[in-house]
Write a protein that binds this DNA or RNA. Structure first.
Length: 883
RNA sequence: GGGCGGUUAGCUCAGCUGGUUCAGAGCACCUGCCUUACAAGCAGGGGGUCACUGGUUCGAAUCCAGUACCGCCCACCA
């Protein structure tokens, strides 16, 4: 590298080094004798594009992986994408729709052909974008959850759990979208408060023969069109008002079907009338009550949201039209008591905005009981640690109440459920059609392939991603606990850290733990680091519709990936949401520039071999060596606790404040003068250590400069330079330098107050022998002052204290005695108050007797220091008065 | 409604098992400087009854209880 530009320009640097890293396969990992450090990427949706959440997450991953690599571990970061069945399928559906093609019309096979085409064309863009961010993924290991081997793994696990008896077919209420004609997941249902009515209906008591008596009860409902599906009326068993109903039967209005009155705690006595109509087919809770009381299920609404013939009346009418009509009919029949306005939350489909209809349907379930129990133990025992810890509570609560997992989805894009139906309605579950045929023929030898019909549904995407930490290494293993892990799996599993958002703690994290325990017999990762959500400045979630989400690639282009990375991370502590502000990235860019220029300065110094190291430089080198070691220890501590932003801030301050503002200023040769070889060498060593420390978060600029500070051979990289280690140091060195810094600050304060230019040499008098003599050269250089140690101040000047040491900047004839007196008086008052406080404590016998000796000792020291300060202040005031 | 977590400077957050002058950091702000690496900079400075109330203790930002507000997860009352 020749002359360095005055400003750092990321664009020229980043692509160059990324290509270099790729060329040399620096990201690639193979099992070897070193300790592995493994991360599997939280696979982004294959059709996704990079957003700020990905930036945060993947930068964290990359920091961890690069740090581990420099720590000498065999670091492996496995990238890949998730087939994301719902998201991808709806994108393909939308694309086809735009072409005038209906999914149903072209059929499954043709649809999947389109979907794969789409995936090949648009899929994996996000992985390209991650390269721009600098992510050091082992691209040779890139995986896709729906690639053949991984799909096989999914099917095998299904068969495995089925054979174990944990997978069963059951009926469940799903969120049915009558417009899209599909079930949608709970996440795709938006609850909106909707104005409707509360209809109070009169149900007459039956005489036992299906005829009404003159007695009746009143129920309140928002859905009168479903009364034909009623299976019971339910009251709370403690409700005295309804004791008389016990054992009675009532008649459904209009159709006069007889239904029983039952009792269940679910009914709230003080809500509505205390009588609830139970409609198992069209309400989730009612369905559960129905299960408890063995009630029949009668479905009267079809897939299109219209009443069917089972309704007996209003057949073929849309549910909302039917509602209006039936109200009228009820009114005419004398069953309508009153109508109240009512606002209640109603579920709408995210995609079509249709009102969701709860619908019963046959689904496949995986029993959770044992899996959840084991997975809870994994976390409670600490084998997998959560950061921040608070999420253990959330996790526990969910695991203790885990409901069976509905694993079927009414979609085509995904792994198709390997259940094959026989003509007699029974089914077999096998990994392949061939095996299924064999199994079917065992039941009925006459069957042929053509007689078998595979289940139409595919598996929940999470049913494939929960295998991710295993299947990316050895797709044979899931579904086969006895299979001997291949070399990769044996080496890389369990992975070390997982970085992800808390929103998928159950969907993904918990289930990976389950799968890991089930198939590997141990946890899939040692640590889970939960990030927060990236929000905009005013706290809104970033979303496309709000348009408040910047495009990370634009930011990278504008500021550089390093700036984006450190900008995001400096202010993001684990578990807390991040309020994104472009100013953070600007701060990152400023830091890049600072690093760049600090090197520009050092690089520009000519070395004169005959030059001897000056006192100030010698001290500064000694001090910074200590400071560096001290800080490295602090940084390591932060990392070990996953306080990433603290670790980075610590390095940031070390670089900017300690190295640039103090150290470089202390060793800086006079303008145009050469530097001695010893100092230059030390400085470059320090600089290299700093580059290495910050490299995990700022990979590009550090590589650029690292390559320049010394002769490097082709194939050398900072990526594999070992993390600087803390060396032993004397704390006295730090302590003495700190005193020097305070003295310098004191002088600078006086300059600032009096508007004295930095160029002007000042005279600083230090009273007594308390100040470490050896650091005086540093003070002289940085304060641009001549320092003298005196017994008493003999000239006029402005005083200040460094701890208990009195100092004075000589200002003959330039000081305002009044002002100085005033200042000293105030300081005295403050000091006396402080002393009083300390003495009150010390005179408290209970404190002296109960507090640890060390604490009492500290108080005594405070007392002594304060006394000494008061004494000098008094003397100073005297002197000023006499002046 | 149930569970969990939070409330410290204008903003974002540290502050571990109560005691080190403990009230901190970064950013923002104010003042003065284009000082020959960097104005994406340098130097200096102001700013908080640690949400509120009570308790425990010699001593509380820190422990306990209650109150208020905020956030997240679950259920989302026919």
């Amino acid at each position: 590298m020749k002359e360095l530009a005055a400003k750092y320009s990321a664009a020229q640097v980043e692509d160059k080094w990324y290509a270099y890293w790729l060329d040399h396969k620096f990201f690639h990992s193979e099992p070897n004798e070193k300790q592995p450090y493994t991360i599997v990427i939280p696979p982004p949706n294959v059709t996704g594009i990079l957003h700020m959440g990905h930036v945060l997450n993947n930068t964290l991953n990359d920091v961890l992986i690069r740090k581990a690599r420099m720590d000498g571990k065999n670091a492996c970061w496995v990238p890949g994408t998730d087939h994301a069945s719902i998201a991808t399928e709806s994108k393909v559906v939308a694309k086809l729709k735009a072409m005038g093609i209906n999914k149903e019309d072209i059929g499954r096979e043709e649809f999947l052909r389109h979907a794969w085409e789409w995936k090949e064309e648009h899929g994996g863009i996000i992985l390209q974008q991650l390269r721009k961010l600098g992510c050091s993924c082992d691209w040779d290991r890139t995986r896709f959850t729906m690639e053949p081997a991984l799909s096989e793994a999914v099917i095998n696990t299904f068969v495995y759990f089925y054979n174990k008896g944990w997978i069963y077919k059951g009926v469940r209420m799903v969120n049915w979208d009558p417009e899209a004609l599909t079930a949608v997941s709970d996440d795709e249902v938006i609850h909106k408060d909707t104005k409707s009515h509360f209809y109070h209906l009169r149900y007459f008591i039956s005489d036992g023969n299906g005829n009404p008596t003159d007695k009746f009860l009143i129920i309140a409902t928002t859905r009168p069109e479903t009364i034909m599906a009623d299976a019971a009326i339910c009251v709370n068993p403690k409700d005295e008002r309804h004791f008389w109903l016990k054992g009675k039967k009532v008649l459904i209005p209009l159709i006069n079907r007889e239904i029983p009155v039952i009792e269940d705690d679910y009914v709230e006595m003080d809500f509505g009338t205390g009588c609830l109509k139970v409609t198992p087919a069209h309400d989730v809770h009612d369905y559960e009550i129905g299960l408890r009381h063995n009630l029949p299920v009668l479905e009267i609404i079809d897939d299109h949201g219209k009443l069917n013939e089972k309704a007996q009346i209003l057949v073929g009418e849309d549910r909302f039209v039917a509602r209006k009509k039936i109200v009228k009919m009820l009114e005419e029949a004398g069953n309508l008591v009153k109508v109240e306005d009512y606002t209640s939350p109603v579920g709408y489909s995210e995609r079509t905005d249709a009102v969701i209809e709860p619908k019963l349907s046959a689904q496949w379930f995986l029993r959770m009981e044992d899996l959840a129990k084991t997975a809870l133990e994994t976390v409670e025992s600490g084998r997998t640690k959560f950061t921040p810890e608070k999420y253990v509570n959330t996790y526990r609560h969910w695991m203790e109440n885990a409901r069976d997992w509905c694993i079927s989805r009414q979609l085509w894009w995904g792994q198709r459920i390997p259940a094959y139906y026989l003509p007699d309605g029974s089914y077999v579950v096998e990994a392949t059609p061939e095996a299924a045929l064999k199994a079917a023929q065992a039941k009925n030898p006459a069957l042929t392939m053509a007689d078998l019909k595979q289940d139409e549904d595919v598996l929940d995407t999470w049913f494939s991603s929960w295998l991710w930490p295993i299947s990316v290494f050895d797709p044979e293993k899931p579904g086969h606990p006895d299979h001997k892990p291949n070399k990769d799996l044996a080496y890389y599993y369990p992975t070390n850290d997982l970085v992800t958002g808390p929103d998928i703690i159950f969907f993904w994290v918990a289930r990976m733990i389950m799968a890991g325990e089930e198939f590997m017999g141990r946890e899939p990762f040692s640590n889970v680091y939960f990030t927060g959500i990236v929000r905009d400045k005013i706290g809104r979630k970033m979303s496309k519709t709000l348009g408040n989400s910047p495009n990370p690639l634009d930011l990278i282009e504008k500021y550089g990936a390093d700036a984006v990375r450190i900008g995001m991370l400096l202010c993001s502590s684990a578990g807390n949401d991040i309020f994104y502000d472009e100013a953070q990235i600007q701060q990152g860019a400023a830091f890049c520039n600072k690093i760049w220029n600090s090197y520009r300065l050092v690089k520009g110094w000519e070395v004169d071999a005959s030059e001897a190291q000056g006192a100030s430089a010698r001290l500064a080198v000694e001090w910074f060596a200590a400071k560096l070691s001290d800080t490295i220890a602090a940084v390591e501590d932060h990392y070990s606790k996953f306080r990433i932003s603290d670790a980075l801030m610590t390095i940031y301050k070390l670089f900017w404040d300690d190295y640039c503002s103090w150290y470089l200023e202390a060793i800086k040769p006079a303008y145009g003068k050469p530097i001695d070889p010893e100092t230059k060498k030390a400085t470059l060593e320090f600089f290299e250590a700093l580059l290495k420390l910050i490299h995990p978060v700022m990979p590009f600029i550090t590589e650029e400069l690292w390559q320049d500070i010394a002769e490097r051979k082709e194939g050398e990289t900072i990526m594999y330079a070992p993390t600087p280690k803390a060396a032993a140091f004397s704390s006295a060195v730090l302590e003495n330098f700190a005193l020097a810094q305070e003295a310098v600050n004191g002088v600078r304060g006086v300059r600032s107050q009096r508007n004295i230019a930095p160029k002007e040499v000042m005279k600083l008098h230090i009273k007594g022998a308390g100040f470490p003599q050896e650091v005086i050269p540093v003070v002289e250089k940085l304060a641009n002052a001549e320092v003298s140690v005196v017994d008493a101040f003999t000239s006029q000047g402005i005083g200040f204290m460094v701890r208990t040491i009195e100092m004075q900047v000589e200002m003959e004839g330039l000081i305002n005695v009044e002002e100085e007196l005033d200042k000293a008086q105030k300081e005295l008052e403050h000091q006396e108050k402080f002393l009083a406080g300390v003495r009150a404590k010390l005179s408290n016998e209970r404190f002296v007797n109960n507090a640890p000796a060390a604490v009492v000792e500290v108080e005594r020291k405070k007392e002594a220091d304060s006394l000494s300060k008061i004494e000098s202040l008094k003397a100073k005031i005297e002197a000023l008065k006499n002046n």
